[in-house]
Design a binder for these strands. Structure first.
Length: 274
DNA sequence: CCTTGAACCTGCGGGC
DNA sequence: TGCCCGCAGGTTCAAG
């Protein structure tokens, strides 16, 4: 389950639980994911050790001792769980990796919008899934100046713009709504019509809302490891997301829901004006 | 180039 | 109880 903070939390959990382990077996129960699982995954991955876990956008990159990355994306409904022994097989479990010490990792994804694939380490930056991604929101490349510069000629809504992974990665439907609320910007505002302060607020609040969520995910990391992965992604409290007709946490006005690009947007019509 | 809409897939909850 | 609808955290691709 995916927005950047959840993916980051999963990566942190994996770092604590599988680095150094040797893969002894791979079981592919369902190869038809967003991209088909490579047919040679078993021969490439078995007998390799997990060296490290990295994240790029919402992709989990597991580096292996043979200069390959195992790339995992969780899509809308994916989970990557680690068990200390062999877990019982559940519906929508699509891949199992078994380790030398008896532990196992499971990729579980009812909707199959996620993916598991392989990439040679030296060409990882040029991999088609990663090559055209924009900046990471938690690095210094992401700033008000960057937003203002890249959006100055764009008339699309600011919500659509910040969810565009060619611009900035990792801002999904929840955190787009939350960062616009904190910035007091209406989601339908044209991207090129924000003033300088609004670009500053937005850049700052995108960073903040993601960092807050990572911190709160991190606080459950102990549980994550102990219980093999179920963090409870909707543990956070949101100011606007999913709160249609409930009252604004600032001014008590009823939160509105509208559709943008086929997806729900939530905002306070009083705090967030066009 | 841009914008819009649909597509991929399963499950859940509400209305009738 | 069943059926149909809309909804869900993402991403890509085709059409206009």
């Amino acid at each position: 389950m995916p927005e950047l903070p959840e993916v980051e939390t999963v990566c942190q959990g994996l770092r604590q639980s599988i680095i150094g382990k040797k893969i002894t077996h791979v079981d592919v129960l369902q190869p038809k994911l967003r991209i088909n699982v490579p047919e040679d995954i078993e021969e490439i991955v078995t007998q390799q050790r997990i060296l490290d876990i990295e994240r790029r956008a919402k992709y989990i990159l597991i580096s292996l001792s043979n200069q390959y990355y195992l790339m995992v994306h969780l899509g809308m409904s994916g989970k990557l769980l680690v068990h200390t022994g062999m877990p019982e097989r559940k519906k929508h479990d699509h891949l199992y990796w078994e380790f030398e010490d008896g532990a196992a990792m499971v990729f579980h994804d009812p909707r199959r919008f996620g993916l598991v694939t392989l990439a040679a380490s030296e060409q990882i930056a040029h991999h088609p899934l990663l090559a055209h991604l924009g900046v990471e929101p938690l690095t210094n490349d992401f700033s008000a100046a960057y937003l203002q510069q890249t959006l100055k000629n764009k008339s699309c809504s600011i919500k659509q713009a910040i969810m565009d992974s060619k611009l900035v990665v990792g801002v999904g439907n929840i955190y787009a709504a939350e960062s616009l609320f904190r910035s007091r910007i209406h989601p339908e505002t044209p991207s090129n019509k924000l003033n300088t302060k609004q670009y500053e607020d937005l850049a700052e609040h995108i960073r903040q809302v993601l960092q807050d969520a990572i911190a709160s995910g991190g606080s459950t990391l102990r549980d994550y490891v102990r219980s093999s992965g179920d963090v409870g992604y909707f543990q956070h409290h949101f100011d606007v997301y999913g709160r249609e007709d409930e009252s604004c946490t600032i001014c008590k006005t009823k939160i509105k829901r509208i559709k943008q690009q086929g997806r729900s947007s939530f905002f306070c019509p009083k705090c967030q004006r066009k």
